[in-house]
Simulated scan of single mutants.
Amino acid sequence: MAKSKASKTRTRIDALRAVIDKECTAPTCRESGTCRHEGEKTAARHMLGRLLEKLKGAAGDEREERARMWAEIYERGYDDHGNTYRTGAKYRTGQSMKERTAGIRADIKMARRVGTAPLVREESGLVSQAVETYRFDPIGEAPAQIKFRVRIGAGYGSIRIGVDDIPQEWGWIAEEVEDYQGEKATRWRRTQELKDLEAELKSIGEAYNADHGSNVMTDCFTQAFFVFIESDDPATIVRRAEYERRDRRA
């Protein structure tokens, strides 16, 4: 069946606004008086703000755009002693680590969901050609087979965002190098697409973070938590599979 004109002309921004504006009709929510879908709406509002901000400067320099992105994520400052402080856009005092990881998961899920919507309308006039070709949604546009996991690190001092099932040809570039013994070896480095994806995931995690006065000169770190992005190159995946096989045999 051919797609309707409405579905063909739907944009990612339209899709987000539809989630935000849709009135909840779920019987359980009406009976309880509390909408259990509010987290989804919050994630949609967060992503809509990020996309609109990026669209404003999409035709500009990528380095400047990334600086603007971080400026929006953090409210930065220094005190009289050179200690830094910053507050993420979604940081809340008293928020538990479980609540933060749940928020990050919701934001990633929303980005993936909206990534299935068309980037621009078929009609002219919505955005310029520069914006059409600008890669502003690395999470939504990442290959469908990629899986994400968000978990609390050991000691509850970090949140780790894992990227699994990365297509080798999409995420990694093989380089032939010589090791310290002069033997040839393969070194894997990230593609620009994977770097962009990891940077976007980092920004989502850091939006829930805050720094209450760190100072690198004195090795004082007072962040609420640390955000780590984890992705294994093909060689690491092979080694891990071999270790698991050995463990099963033992």
Rank of each mutant, 00 (worst) to 15 (best):
T133L: 12
L48S: 12
R92T: 12
Y74W: 13
K54W: 04
S128R: 09
K54E: 07
E53S: 07
T28W: 07
R113T: 06
G39V: 03
M47P: 03
T87Y: 09
T101V: 12
Q129E: 13
N83I: 00
H37M: 11
E40P: 03
G77H: 05
E122D: 14
G39T: 07
V127M: 08
R68A: 02
R100N: 08
R30P: 04
R105S: 08
E75Y: 05
A59K: 08
D61W: 01
K90Q: 13
H81Q: 14
A106S: 15
T42I: 08
D61F: 01
M69Y: 10
D107P: 03
G103R: 05
H46Q: 15
E132A: 12
K22E: 15
E75I: 02
C29K: 01
D61L: 03
E23Q: 11
G39Y: 01
V120I: 06
E53V: 02
G77T: 03
G33P: 06
T116F: 05
R36I: 05
G125W: 01
I108Y: 07
A130H: 12
P27I: 05
V131G: 09
M47N: 11
D107G: 06
R121Q: 13
R121W: 01
P27C: 07
R92A: 12
A130K: 14
D107T: 05
G125K: 00
G57W: 10
Y91N: 05
T116V: 04
E40G: 10
G125D: 09
Q95F: 00
A44H: 05
I73Y: 02
Y134H: 11
L52W: 03
G33K: 07
L126T: 11
R105C: 04
A89M: 14
A59Y: 01
R135D: 15
E99L: 04
L119V: 15
S128E: 10
V114D: 05
G103S: 09
E64S: 15
G125Q: 02
Q129D: 12
G88E: 00
Y85G: 03
E122W: 10
G77L: 01
L119D: 15
E122R: 12
R112H: 02
Y85P: 00
M47R: 14
S124F: 13
G88M: 01
K90V: 03
K109Y: 00
I108A: 07
Y134C: 11
R50M: 10
E123Q: 11
G94E: 06
T116C: 03
R105F: 00
T101I: 08
E65I: 11
I73D: 00
C29W: 01
G60H: 04
E40L: 09
L126F: 08
T25E: 12
W70Y: 11
H37Q: 14
T84C: 10
K56G: 02
T116E: 10
R63E: 14
V131R: 14
D107N: 11
